[in-house]
Every structure is written in structure tokens, then in C-alpha cells.
Amino acid sequence: MSIKLPNSIADYIEANTRLDLDGMMEHFHKDAVFIDNGKQHVGQASIRRLLENEGIAVKAIFEPDTVRDEDSVVVLEGPTHGDFPGSPLRFTYRFTMENDAIKILETTVWA
């Protein structure tokens, strides 16, 4: 990767590779928003349910292979594989940070 990831993002990705829900959650701002293919999940409780039900449950692991900075938004792209139809699918993750915490995470799957 050509730019150094903020520690919180690198730690989030590493926790995801271990399917460690608590490790993933510790990097979200208390008022974080997770936008999953256009659907908003606001606050840590809602984000935890999303990650548990749609990520951990199907063993979805994101493996970024590209990274770029777009106006202070860190954009990662790469495949996500797991126990779900069509695996692996290519995703884009857009991280907006606030005080070294993930304030907004937007994920989209490539069509």
C-alpha cells in the first residue's frame, strides 16, 4: 500500500481478519455511522449488530489491495471472502476519521 494507514484503520482491518468483533468495535467513535450499501447504521449498538449479523456470522474477511486518500477520507478497495453467495466480492471501504477513531465507514460492493 502506498500510504500509511491510520492506526485505528489498520487495527480494525487486523481485527476483521481474526473475526474479532470487540477488536473491530473498539476503533469506532461513540457516535459513529456505518453506511452499508446506502443503509445507515448509527451508533455503536447498531454497528455492532450489523457487523455481528452480516460480517462475523458469515466469516466475511476484507483483504484490501489498494488504498488512497480522497480529501481526508481513506479509501480501501479489495475482495471480501466468506461463507456468503458470490464470495469473494470486491468492496470499497471509505473511512472518515475523527480524533483517531472511525467516525464514518461507508462500504459498497462492486456490481
Rank of each mutant, 00 (worst) to 15 (best):
K4M: 11
L19D: 09
E54T: 07
D31C: 01
F28T: 05
T80Y: 00
F34S: 10
R94W: 01
R90V: 13
A101H: 14
G82W: 04
I104Y: 02
D22A: 11
N16M: 02
M24D: 02
I47R: 12
F84Y: 13
H81C: 03
I56M: 07
G86S: 05
D83M: 01
L76A: 06
H81I: 00
W110Q: 14
L19K: 09
N7D: 12
F91S: 09
D71N: 14
G55Y: 13
K103F: 04
G78K: 05
D65M: 04
K39N: 11
K59E: 15
E63G: 07
M97I: 14
V75R: 04
I104N: 11
K39H: 13
R49S: 15
R49L: 15
L51P: 01
G82R: 08
G43Y: 07
M1Y: 04
A60Q: 11
S72V: 00
A111M: 10
F62S: 03
G86C: 02
D69M: 13
A32N: 02
F62I: 06
I104D: 10
N99L: 08
G38N: 09
G55D: 02
M97L: 15
I61M: 09
R90Y: 13
T108M: 01
A111Y: 06
V73H: 03
L76E: 07
M1P: 00
E26M: 14
I102P: 02
L5H: 07
A111D: 12
W110S: 10
H29S: 11
D31P: 05
G38D: 09
P6V: 00
N99S: 11
N7K: 14
T107C: 02
L5K: 06
A32R: 05
E98I: 06
T66S: 15
A45M: 12
L19W: 02
G82Q: 05
T96N: 08
G82F: 02
D65A: 07
V58Y: 12
G82T: 01
G55H: 01
V67G: 07
M1C: 02
P64I: 10
L51Q: 12
S87P: 07
I9K: 06
N7Y: 07
G38Q: 11
F95Y: 12
T17I: 00
D20F: 04
P79A: 12
I3D: 04
W110Y: 11
A10I: 03
A32E: 10
V73W: 05
P88T: 07
H41C: 05
P88F: 07
V109D: 01
G82V: 00
E98N: 11
W110R: 08
A60N: 03
L50V: 08
E54Y: 14
K30V: 12
V58M: 09
R94P: 01
I13S: 02
D20A: 00
E54R: 09
S87R: 06
L89C: 09
G78M: 05
F84T: 08
I13Q: 00
V42W: 05
V42L: 13
D11S: 13
E52V: 00
I102E: 04
A45D: 15
D65H: 12
L51V: 03
E70R: 08
V58L: 08
A57P: 01
Q44T: 15
V58G: 02
F91W: 13
D31V: 02
N37F: 02
D83K: 07
A15P: 06
F62L: 06
I56C: 06
V42R: 14
I3N: 08
G86F: 05
